[in-house]
Design a protein around this nucleic acid. Structure first.
Lengths: 83, 83, 83, 83
DNA sequence: AACGTTGAAATAGTTC
DNA sequence: GAACTATTTCAACGTT
């Protein structure tokens, strides 16, 4: 159904852009919610910076990190790099 | 209800973080959807960079747009650059 | 001289990595300088975003610029957006 | 010396932009050199992806990472998060 | 040589 | 309004 130069390309494009704009609105709504929760936590004396740090750590896919490190180890050792 | 140093601070904190993580998941889900739509559009031959440009134009206030454009014009002229 | 599995592969690899690290330092040094100039300009009241826009225009080929602009125009029109 | 609306603003701006463009050229030149070294290494059978991974690790300021982790530990423990 | 993936740069938003 | 963080955008890289 690719038709970027045909007659109905405009309609297709319009559809894509409307879908994106709607999704962006939803996304923004959740971003607002997140901001509110952080604000509430902060109002109750919590260190939001630390909270963000922990959340970020949790978000990382640990399995993937480990896998990469296996290869890395080999080369790091080869050049005499310790950590 | 603020008690970041009391006994139930941990529970409170945990609650905040769980709420945030859930919201972040939702948010991420919409971000993924957006990426997919762009990918689909690209697959159908559309220029996603141009799409992004138009979406940005729509999101910006018209006055703001004119203002920024005017500054760019001024600067370009000031250094003797024509386009 | 390729020998990634031989005995001196480590030495060779180490040499490559050292060369790269040195080059990266130089590169970073210039990136820092650029940032400083922008900061100085900003401190003197200039609109760095506009400066970046002009710099980008200068860097782009004129034909390429026109082409991209034309696509944006087309898309904007196609979805009924005027600016 | 701020004078973005005065008479010599143009000259000042031009000077900033020229300085930046020169620095960008230098920076780009080093980026090219880096790319060449990677290409050479690859041509000799080395895994450039792993090389990049190691280089990135080395670039991280370990001291800073440790410092952050101290704060993070406290909160991570509070919510029963292990890693 | 197009595609997806990744990393760096730039912009936007938030906090102080 | 200055600094920091987060997000978005852009370019490079390897892959098919």
């Amino acid at each position: 159904m690719a038709d970027p130069v045909g007659n109905n390309a405009g309609a297709q494009l319009k559809s894509y852009m409307e879908r994106i704009e709607n999704l962006q609105e939803e996304k923004k709504s959740y971003a607002d919610d997140i901001r509110e929760v952080f604000a509430e936590a902060k109002g109750n004396g919590f260190d939001t910076k630390a909270m963000r740090a922990v959340l970020k750590l949790r978000a990382q896919d640990k399995a993937e990190r480990r896998e990469q490190e296996a290869v890395v180890q080999t080369y790091a050792t080869a050049i005499g790099f310790e950590w």
